[in-house]
Design a protein around this nucleic acid. Structure first.
Lengths: 247, 247
DNA sequence: CTTGACCTTGACGCAGCGTCAACCTTTACC
DNA sequence: GGTAAAGGTTGACGCTGCGTCAAGGTCAAG
């Protein structure tokens, strides 16, 4: 008959359905054997059909016991299937670009973070331990952008960094209007980065904002990005001042 | 900080990774607290990245421990993602047509099986108890066909049934060449139906083939399909003879 | 010194069975 | 009638990746 393995599995399935109350045997013989009559088999038929459509057993139970409108339940299920498909699409995209990047010679997320664009801001969090996940989220966000979107972000960040560098070099005070305006721009820019810890108002939290400035001044790699150590300290002071006033 | 729930979850995650040996704390304080240094955090970063790409933890472990070529592993993963997407496509299709059918007034698989086309052959199995699953498989197969494919099947089946009826009515012997040729056609036709229990040769098993003929003669609904009770008995005899000779 | 926040180690639960293990019935054959 | 094979029964663990209590130690703050 060629059904050996399959047969055993089906048996276990029937037992399982019995255990969870989805399909009871119509009777149980004195020898303990389960028996299924016509009605039970019809029900089993429907269960198997719905299962092949991907529904979960609880959903099937509700549906078969008439507690939910069949059509509505199936529509909901359809919707969820479509969502899943979208999710897979995004995954496939991510994996593909990752592979492409690797073929381009880049190691798996090794050093690519310090590429001038500081989407590595999240590194501050990593150092705080709880943010490794946020970091990865941030990276995956970056990874999922199109080339143009990335270009746009890069330009925006570079412009900001250049403006910071210029302001620091010009000798203006870090708590003056010009520097504070830059701080405000920086704040808004951060607000646009997913994964940023944010307050109820939607912007970055005060701790995060201040800590970030601190890091710019401390970490040479970031400092270089903002025009050197002196400039980075200027950025830090301006950000701290801004945070004190507005956050 | 607004990270409460998330934080707790992440903690559990780290414990889990420690348990399965994916990521050990770099050190454990005398108070039992886990600590993760730079290296460990980098590893965590990579783990989280790969996880977001949908890889399983064992796969991630192999990959990070350098036991597998990164690119090859990701390609394999990509392939599996694409398969999954295809599977979802088929599911979505099935659910959609099921909904359409229901809107057309049909109850969930209620009586549609006796519509002249006997893809309900699998009912024989249902009666034998072990075949309910095969039956559902058969139905889903039918459900997944395009309209033209169905038409083709229907025509083929109707032609076969008509030829059987004619042969039975003409009074030729069930073990004669003409009837045996019909049995051979029937055999080939069955071989094309997924879910059919089949022997190593690829065709239906002897038991199945004979049992089916038995059912045609026994069940009025099938008998009608082959030209009535007398004709159905003729079919059964021809099939049994064929089975005895060739199976 | 107490309170509360944060850490620790179990252990159960989730979906849907697959897969032993240990044991009883029925069937088939000599 | 005896015996072995086939097929049934009830546990119970395993898988994925943690979420979610529970019970209890540690640490910083008031």
């Amino acid at each position: 008959m060629d059904w050996a393995i399959h047969d055993i599995a089906r048996l276990r399935t029937l037992r399982h359905y019995g255990q969870i109350g989805l399909l009871e045997p119509s009777s149980i013989g004195s020898n303990g054997y389960r028996r299924y009559d016509e009605r039970a088999l019809t029900r089993l038929q429907r269960i198997l059909l719905l299962r092949e459509l991907g529904l979960g057993l609880p959903a099937i139970a509700e549906l078969l016991d008439g507690q939910r409108d069949d059509a509505r339940a199936l529509l909901a299920h359809l919707h969820w299937l479509q969502q899943e498909k979208l999710r897979l699409d995004r995954l496939i995209n991510s994996v593909e670009t990752t592979i492409l990047k690797m073929e381009g010679g880049e190691q798996l997320m090794a050093e690519e973070m310090f590429d001038g664009f500081d989407h590595t801001v999240h590194r501050a969090e990593v150092e705080e331990r709880w943010g490794a996940e946020a970091y990865a989220r941030g990276d995956s966000w970056w990874r999922s952008m199109t080339a143009e979107e990335r270009d746009e972000w890069m330009t925006r960040q570079k412009q900001l960094a250049a403006d910071w560098a210029a302001a620091a070099a010009s000798g203006i005070p870090s708590d003056g209007d010009a520097a504070q305006a830059l701080a405000a721009r920086h704040f808004a820019w951060l607000a646009g980065i997913p994964g940023t810890p944010r307050s109820a108002a939607g912007g970055p939290t005060k701790e995060y904002f201040v800590g970030l400035g601190e890091m710019y001044a401390t970490d040479d790699r970031f400092a270089a990005n903002y025009g050197g150590a002196d400039a980075a300290r200027f950025v830090r002071d301006a950000m701290a001042h801004y945070a004190g006033l507005h956050l």
